[in-house]
Design a protein around this nucleic acid. Sequence first.
DNA 1: ATTCTGACGTGGG
DNA 2: CCCCACGCCAGAA
Length: 112
Amino acid sequence: MGDNSNFFERSYEIARQIPFGRVTSYGAIAKHLGATKSARMVGWAMNASKNDDTVPAHRVVNKKGLLTGKSHFQGTNLMQQLLESEGIEIIENQIQNFEQKFWDPTIELKSK
DNA sequence: ATTCTGACGTGGG
DNA sequence: CCCCACGCCAGAA
């Protein structure tokens, strides 16, 4: 077990733990999975999670706090709307006070 | 089989 | 701040 074919599921496990009103990045998830250089695969995993509505994919953005995955959601602005409904302010695809909203799995889940 | 493209990140200039 | 090259690896053409 522990083979990386579970990479998608492991990404989902972490995404599900992102608290309401908080966000994290693809790279942060990848890092926590021990695959720092495979941030792209996390994005791919989120893309594949469309069927799974238990995965809050809208809470995963890039390292700068930009909504780079926006166009992969249903509506034109669904991702932004979901985040705004959680109290996150967004201007020009950029999350405001990003550092404050950022939830780092490597820190928050460190005691494991 | 080969090439290109990404929901990315890092490093160099 | 910007732009570019590279590493990563799954899919599409």
